[in-house]
C-alpha cells in the first residue's frame, strides 16, 4: 500500500485506481448489508451488528498479523500520534445501526431511511471537506466534484424510489 498522502491545497482529479477502489468497496458494502441483513432478520439488528463487529475485529487482527509477517518492520514515519478521539469512529459506526434500525421501523420505512441517510452523509461530508474538520485536510470541491455528487445522488434517489414504487 503506497504511503502517498496528498498535501497540496488544491484538489486534484481522482486517479482511476482510486475510483475503481471506491466502486469495488461500495460493492462490498452491498454484500455486507446483504449478510448483516440476513443475520438481523434471523436474530435481531443489534445482535447482527454485534457479530459483524466481533467477526470484523478477529479478521482485522488476522490481516494485520499477515501484513506484519510479510513486510519487514519499517521505521514509523514521523506522522503525529493520533489523538484519542480519533479512536472513536467505531462508536458512531455502532450507533448508525441502532439509529437506522429505529428509523426503518417508523413510517419512513427503508426507502425514506436510505434517502435521508444519503442526504445526511453527503451534507456532512461537504461540511467536513470545506472546514477540514477532525484533522483531515481542508479542500474546496471542484465544480466537477459537485456535479458528480449531484448526479450520483440523483441516480441513487431514483434507484431507491424505484424499489419503493414497486412495493
Amino acid at each position: 500500500m503506497p504511503a502517498r498522502i496528498p498535501t497540496a491545497e488544491e484538489p486534484r482529479r481522482p486517479h482511476p485506481v482510486e475510483i475503481l477502489a471506491a466502486l469495488c468497496a461500495g460493492s462490498l458494502l452491498t454484500l455486507m448489508l446483504l449478510s448483516n441483513g440476513m443475520m438481523a432478520a434471523h436474530t435481531t439488528p443489534i445482535f447482527a451488528s454485534l457479530t459483524a463487529h466481533g467477526v470484523g475485529t478477529a479478521v482485522a487482527v488476522l490481516l494485520l498479523l499477515l501484513f506484519r509477517l510479510r513486510t519487514p518492520p519499517q521505521p514509523r514515519m514521523a506522522a503525529s500520534r493520533a489523538p484519542l478521539w480519533a479512536y472513536l469512529g467505531g462508536i458512531s459506526g455502532a450507533l448508525t445501526v441502532v439509529v437506522s434500525t429505529v428509523v426503518v421501523n417508523s413510517s419512513l420505512a427503508l426507502t425514506g431511511t436510505m434517502a435521508l441517510g444519503l442526504a445526511g452523509q453527503v451534507v456532512l461530508a461537504l461540511v467536513f471537506d470545506a472546514t477540514g474538520a477532525l484533522g483531515l485536510e481542508r479542500r474546496l470541491p471542484r465544480r466537477n466534484d459537485l456535479l458528480a455528487l449531484a448526479a450520483i445522488v440523483a441516480g441513487t434517489l431514483l434507484i431507491i424510489f424505484a424499489r419503493g414504487g414497486a412495493a
Partner: peptide, 16 residues
C-alpha cells in the same frame, strides 16, 4: 486522497 464528499459519493455509486 479524495476528500470526504467524493469518497462518500463514489462509495455510494459502487453500492448502488
Amino acid at each position: 486522497r479524495l476528500g470526504a464528499a467524493l469518497t462518500g459519493g463514489l462509495l455510494v455509486a459502487g453500492q448502488m
